[in-house]
């Protein structure tokens, strides 16, 4: 009953609140392979001079989005959990509702899911286990998933599967990322898979599907593959 009353009141109050002081801020994720746009099940990309790769899956969680001014949090998104899935274009674009009067310089977010949410049972929305990002045999979210084929992998069909997750010390894989956000209404954030693959040894690390030291180390490397988009200069 309380809920009904609350939503009844909010249906009047909420539009007034929002229309007055909020503005949409768009955060767009742009998966790249070096200077090329990353397309699934399409191109063969080359790296390390001799290696080539074909990407079939790229999915990762972004959570706990905050805006910072002079390194202090000035706004944070409530219940902030987003699954970014390259095979679903709409998931690459997040819309934040930020109060108009807020001034910010940086965006901060986690790559992955915090330990509290890892141990809170079944969730809905982007965290629903049907999203294929929850380990069934040992509870916990997969924070980052990259699958494909590469000549560097001496595996069946040259396949590799990197499922990075784990929330328990000392192998907690969640990563904090802070990036400058100069534009006030939108940001484009690049995740460069070439940077990531060039920094690991795909011939040895081709199947990571459980928490542990490998997942922990690779997660730190993935985090370094995020950067603000800089448009190529036109000459």
């Amino acid at each position: 009953m309380k809920k009904i009353f609350f939503s009844f009141v909010m249906s009047f109050v909420a539009p007034m609140l929002f229309s007055q002081s909020y503005k949409p801020v768009q955060v767009n994720f742009k998966p790249m392979f070096g200077s090329q746009e990353l397309v699934l099940n399409d191109s063969v990309y080359t790296f390390n001079l001799k290696d080539s790769v074909y990407i079939e899956t790229l999915k990762f969680y972004i959570s706990g989005i905050e805006l910072l001014c002079k390194n202090k949090m000035v706004w944070k998104e409530n219940n902030s959990y987003h699954l970014i899935n390259l095979s679903e274009e709409n998931t690459l674009h997040l819309m934040l509702q930020v109060p108009k009067n807020i001034h910010f310089e940086h965006i901060k977010f986690y790559l992955g899911i915090d330990s509290g949410m890892n141990t809170s049972g079944a969730q809905g929305g982007d965290l629903d286990p049907t999203k294929g990002m929850f380990w069934t045999w040992q509870s916990g979210y997969i924070n980052f998933k990259l699958e494909g084929k590469s000549n560097a992998c001496a595996t069946r069909k040259h396949e590799f599967m990197l499922h990075l997750g784990g929330y328990l010390y000392p192998y907690n894989t969640i990563q904090t990322i802070v990036l400058p956000m100069p534009a006030k209404t939108s940001a484009i954030i690049v995740i460069d898979i070439k940077t990531f693959l060039s920094a690991i040894d795909l011939s040895k690390q081709h199947h990571i599907m459980s928490p542990g030291n490998n997942a922990f180390l690779l997660s730190q490397i993935v985090a370094k593959s995020f950067s603000p988009w800089i448009a190529p200069s036109k000459k």
């Binding site: 141990t119 809170s120 079944a122 286990p129 049907t130 069934t136 045999w137 040992q138 509870s139 916990g140």
Partner: peptide
Amino acid sequence: GAINHLDVQSLAPISHPDEMGENIVSVV
């Protein structure tokens, strides 16, 4: 103790190839 919450316990037997051999996406 592989499973950390009762809600996600059922995922294990549903998904295990030697138990129900199914997956939650297909169940839904």
